[in-house]
Amino acid sequence: MLKKFSLLSLSAAVLASMSVNGVPTDAQAVTLKWHTFIPPVANPSKFYKPWAAKIAKDSGGKLKVKLFWTMQLGGKPTQLLDQAKDGVVDIVWTLPGFTPGRMPRVEPFELPFVHKDPVSTTLALQDFQAKHLGPDLKDYHPLLLHVHAGFLFQTKKPILKMEDLKGMKIRAASRAGVWMLQAFGAIGIGMPLPRIPGALSKGGIDGVTLPYEIAPAVKTQDLVSHFSILEGHQPRLGTNVFTLLMNKKKYEGLPNDLKRVLDANSGRNIAKAAGELWVKIEEPGRKVIASKKKNKFHTIPAIEVARLKAAAGPVFDRWYDEMKKIGVDGPALVKDARAMIEKYSK
């Protein structure tokens, strides 16, 4: 069970975990434009607001990250990767899953039941990035790859067995998630996060696969009534990979002292803090859901979980076929992803 925590102390912990010695003295002031699709009230802001503040502090105010939320700088969530690549903005935080096939080598972590928890999976992603993700990230300077706590069913009708999913229209964030839902008998629909409230309220979808923490941002506490996790040591169906990516030329053009500040607040230096925060922000999201008397929490029994896992087998085969088309050894990537997660789960 997650322990109660203070958001203020949590933010302080994030800041402390991103430490760097000394303050640069030889750099000109630089402001980086950071762009994302979520609103500033969403729980992930509890990571990125302290992160931006820490960079300003460590640089003595000479490197600042200005945060732009909810696509304030224009475009659609599906265009964020290109915005960073083309220099429209300096940094983006987004999901590669919004543009299926764009970064296929990260997808083993999004396949059903591979993920365990956000700390071990995020730490594993750092190893996996160094070994496998060069081709996918060649157009960017990666600052962090991480995951959320894992998605569960959030639906208008209860889900306690696989038959309950038949014909339901359920949103997923990635193609692996869509394929998983199809394998379960549901109608999987890929959809960026901002479109969820309208789709739920107008009947375009019957539910979503999301973690608790993001529920208040898309109002699932009001728009659906049933929340289903899995019995056993792996209570979530899977997760999604998030990428914090910087324009490559912008990074290369920074003075060396500011590069050092950014490097100290990137990658392995902040991965554990990111994983731990995404564990902890589940609790306030769940509390918002529980505050509505209409909402009910369910646990899908182990016998049904086994059926879901068996049904998910073809999802892997489908992904392996897609990887074969681009000359990538899919089974080897999945094997490595599982081994790396297991390494950090011990």
Rank of each mutant, 00 (worst) to 15 (best):
I281S: 05
K157Q: 05
V114R: 03
F227K: 00
V23S: 11
H233V: 10
I341L: 07
G61C: 13
L144G: 03
P314D: 04
V315E: 00
P112R: 04
V30K: 15
L145N: 02
A84H: 12
A339L: 13
W319I: 01
Y140I: 07
D329Y: 12
W51M: 06
P301D: 00
D82T: 10
K324P: 01
N256M: 14
E276P: 00
A274D: 07
V92M: 08
L125C: 02
A215T: 12
E283C: 08
Q129M: 14
G275Q: 10
K292F: 15
L181H: 01
G327I: 08
L210V: 12
F68I: 03
R338D: 01
R102L: 04
K66C: 00
P100T: 06
P77W: 11
Q182L: 02
S228G: 08
D164P: 02
Y320R: 11
M323G: 01
D164C: 03
K3H: 13
A332D: 02
S225Y: 12
M162E: 04
L277M: 14
A27L: 09
K259W: 10
R105C: 06
P284L: 12
P44H: 11
F242A: 04
S266T: 11
D336C: 11
H233T: 10
K156N: 01
F153Y: 14
K62R: 15
A149S: 14
D222K: 15
P197V: 06
T36E: 15
P197I: 06
L137Y: 10
G87A: 12
M340L: 15
T36G: 07
V114P: 00
E304D: 11
Q182W: 01
A130E: 13
G327T: 05
S225W: 11
F184D: 02
K85Q: 14
M103W: 09
V261C: 11
A306S: 12
P192D: 13
E304V: 13
G285F: 08
V119C: 02
V279C: 07
R268M: 10
N240R: 02
A12G: 10
N265C: 11
Y344F: 14
I270R: 13
E322D: 14
W34N: 04
